[in-house]
């Protein structure tokens, strides 16, 4: 159906009015400046269409924080590894060092008076001879008669073995 074949003048007039008003409506929305703006946007899109897609940082603040977070994480890992290494070496050294050196180092903290009144208090800062003397004294005390007398009482009591 062609427009020129339209016989109804009322309909033809209405269609002409419709077309004219439709064009005027669009022209009211899109003046010359809007058309120019649209043209520039189209050309911009066309120019960008052939280029590879950009990778946008998300979000901006995280980008600056990420290296710092990485560094701190690395430092924490390094510190943990160093601490473990130092602990292992120290532990090995404690076993390797001679007993005297260990005693010399820890003795001041162990210098507590023994609560029992029977045993002679031995100074904590002891040499090897003093240790031997202490062990001798204990041996004598255990094998002495007074101690054997007390053994009967010991057998009557409930055996307590500390864990």
């Amino acid at each position: 159906m062609n427009r020129r074949e339209e016989p109804d003048p009322t309909l033809a007039d209405a269609l002409d009015a419709y077309r004219a008003a439709a064009w005027a409506e669009v022209d009211a929305h899109f003046d010359e400046r809007a058309l120019e703006s649209q043209r520039q946007r189209i050309l911009q899109k066309v120019a960008q269409a052939g280029q590879p897609a950009r990778v946008l940082a998300f979000p901006g603040t995280t980008t600056s924080l990420r290296p710092a977070a990485g560094i701190s994480r690395r430092w924490i890992s390094a510190a943990a590894a160093a601490g473990l290494l130092v602990g292992l070496v120290t532990g090995q050294l404690l076993h390797v060092l001679p007993g005297d050196a260990w005693v010399h180092r820890v003795a001041p903290r162990a210098a507590q008076p023994y609560p029992s009144g029977r045993l002679t208090l031995i100074p904590a800062v002891a040499t090897t001879d003093a240790d031997n003397a202490l062990l001798d004294a204990i041996d004598v005390a255990v094998t002495s008669r007074g101690a054997s007398d007390l053994r009967a009482f010991d057998d009557l009591t409930f055996a307590y073995e500390p864990r």
Partner: peptide
């Protein structure tokens, strides 16, 4: 619709 849209 605004009257201005009617053809001049």
């Amino acid at each position: 619709r605004p009257v201005e849209q009617v053809p001049a």
